[in-house]
Simulated scan of single mutants.
Amino acid sequence: MDVVVGRVAKAHGIGGELAVDLRTDLPETRFAPGSVLAAKLRDGTSRNLTVAAARNHSGRLLVRFAEVLTRDVAETLRGTLLLAGTEDLPPTGDPDEFYDHELEGLVAELADGTRVGTVREIVHGPGGELLVIVRETGDETLVPFVREIVPAVDVAGGRVVLDPPEGLLDAR
């Protein structure tokens, strides 16, 4: 299974370097030199890119790929999604820690079994992680991913249990 680990924001400099918005907790592993990522271009085509180098810069990762040697080529990759496989990820070692791809697609329900929606994605913000829940109505709700509000995660059972404070799930 492939998961999105980054999105190309823009070209950086004249040597083909790319500014990448991260979508992974493991940038040092995913963007290690020699790593091969699948690149899904905006036109729907795909190609593989090999990481030559990566470094942090102003909240983004600057990545140089072996196949991208000029700024002109780098400009064509703006908006490209970078994907990596999940099969080679090491276990987290903590029963209360999860990879994003393990949570995406889980059913969100209340303790009494009432279905609330489905986890679409996890947003990593400065204040902590948020579950983006797509409600049965099609609306989205952001739920803080903290034990007080999400007391149980059952990956094998395909669900997360919510105990929301009053008003969190009210329609807006």
Rank of each mutant, 00 (worst) to 15 (best):
I122S: 01
E109K: 14
L89T: 03
G125D: 12
E140I: 06
E104V: 11
T86P: 07
T114E: 13
E67M: 06
A66H: 08
I122Y: 01
F98E: 02
D96I: 02
R64D: 13
L110A: 09
L131H: 04
E102I: 03
E97P: 00
L89D: 15
D139E: 15
V116I: 14
R64N: 10
D96V: 06
H124L: 12
R135I: 03
L103A: 07
P95F: 01
A84L: 11
A108C: 04
P95E: 10
G138Y: 06
P95T: 01
V134W: 00
V107M: 11
D139W: 03
G93K: 09
A66I: 04
T92I: 02
G79Q: 07
L83G: 01
V119G: 04
T80R: 09
E87M: 11
E104N: 11
A66Q: 13
G117C: 04
V107L: 11
R71E: 13
V123W: 09
G79P: 01
G128S: 06
V73S: 10
D100N: 12
G113W: 04
D94K: 09
T141Q: 11
R120P: 00
G85H: 11
L82V: 07
L81A: 12
E104H: 02
V143F: 09
E97M: 11
H101L: 05
A66G: 01
A66M: 08
L89Q: 10
V123K: 12
R78F: 02
G113T: 05
V143I: 11
T118H: 00
V134E: 15
V119H: 02
I122E: 00
E136R: 14
T118L: 02
T70N: 04
V119W: 04
